[in-house]
Write a protein that binds this DNA or RNA. Structure first.
Length: 339
DNA sequence: ATAATTTGACCGTG
DNA sequence: CACGGTCAAATTAT
């Protein structure tokens, strides 16, 4: 049991280093506004890698630390098998769509959906699974929001998303995101429930494209450390976090486990970070307090770019370090997230 | 002009 | 009838 204390100490140490490195990020970014010299790029790259490694290490340590009981103190990304339903592994490829996409042509007046629009009856979910995550936007697919609903007994609205390529490819994948009603001091967590696997090639292509395009995008890599504008009521946090079409510059936060609401500031200075982990624009990154006039998230839907399975040359790293046990862990962890 | 999001209403289920 | 999920017109953003 002594090792528990040791581990906790180790976690604290690693977390501290993580924070320190993150604090350096804005400085580097400031320099990189101009054509960055290669040394800056190298430094950026190294920083990014260091953050990843630390993050993964922390994740692993935390997991070992908390056996099963009790709420995860910090669970950056935890995959929770959805309830009963049919549980299918969160892999993008187990394509089983169901049937007929029935285009509902009815107008609003002669209300559509004569039970047909509901795909026959109650949706027969080909698969369903859920995750709890601080970064609900980052699942490698592109989503379009199609609804939002206040759910009984919850503080936050639930946002509904479907695959962007539903029309093109008939992809039946959907998901809804519900911000967890947790302590306001805690970083917001989101319960994301997925229904149906993606059956469209476009989805994976988009993800792949993003993977390629975002590599070397350290700005994107770093962008996640600061706050998004805070939405007063928090009602749209989920939506803000989930939307996949970025209104803000599509900066990409590597789906790393984040430990703090805002790593850019010391904890004490974090002003009620409600949306700490979302990708944010550069301006937001440096002006954490930026807000709209009304203090709301600009169309909270500020969708986060989809397709983020790519984290700054991450795949390359992994490929290059086949026998590194840490990388194996990383692979394991990220495979969990990457579906 | 086009695309994405918002939002209120509709619909099926329990 | 309440509730959750979805639709689609209206609105907003690009």
């Amino acid at each position: 049991m002594a090792c528990v204390a040791d581990r906790e100490a180790a976690v604290r140490e690693v977390a501290q280093v993580y924070e320190l490195i993150k604090v350096q990020q804005p400085l580097l970014l400031l320099h990189s506004q101009q054509p960055p010299p290669s040394t800056t790029q190298l430094a950026q790259s190294l920083l990014g890698k260091a953050l990843r490694a630390l993050n993964v290490a922390l994740s692993v340590m935390k997991q070992q630390q908390q056996p099963a009981a009790g709420p995860p103190a910090v669970t950056p990304i935890s995959v929770v098998k959805a309830k009963p339903h049919q549980l299918s592994p969160p892999s993008p490829a187990s394509a089983d769509t169901q049937a007929a996409i029935v285009p509902s042509t009815a107008t609003r007046g002669a209300k559509r959906r004569s039970s047909v629009a509901m795909d026959g009856k109650k949706k027969i979910k080909s698969s369903s699974w859920a995750t709890v995550t601080a970064v609900p936007y980052d699942d490698g697919y592109e989503w379009r929001k199609y609804g939002e609903k206040k759910i009984n007994g919850t503080l936050f609205t639930r946002s509904y998303f479907r695959c962007t390529y539903k029309g093109d490819a008939g992809c039946q994948a959907t998901k809804h995101v519900q911000q967890v009603d947790n302590n306001s001091d805690d970083p917001p967590m989101f319960h994301v429930t997925y229904n149906n696997d993606h059956t469209c090639n476009s989805c994976s292509k988009a993800a792949a494209a993003n993977t390629g395009s975002s590599s070397n995008n350290l700005a994107a890599l770093l962008a996640g450390c600061c706050n998004m504008k805070q939405e007063p009521t928090g009602q749209h946090a989920a939506a803000a976090a989930m939307n996949m079409k970025q209104k803000e510059p599509p900066l990409l936060l590597p789906p790393l486990v984040d430990l703090q609401p805002s790593a850019c500031l010391p904890h004490e200075q974090i002003p009620q970070c409600q949306e700490p982990l979302f990708p944010v624009s550069m301006e937001q990154q440096f002006c954490g307090a930026l807000r709209d006039d009304d203090g709301e998230i600009p169309s909270a839907t500020g969708s986060c770019i989809s397709g983020e399975t790519s984290w700054d040359g991450y795949s390359g790293d992994m490929a290059a370090a086949e026998d590194d046990p840490l990388h194996d862990l990383e692979r394991f962890l990220f495979m969990d997230m990457d579906y």
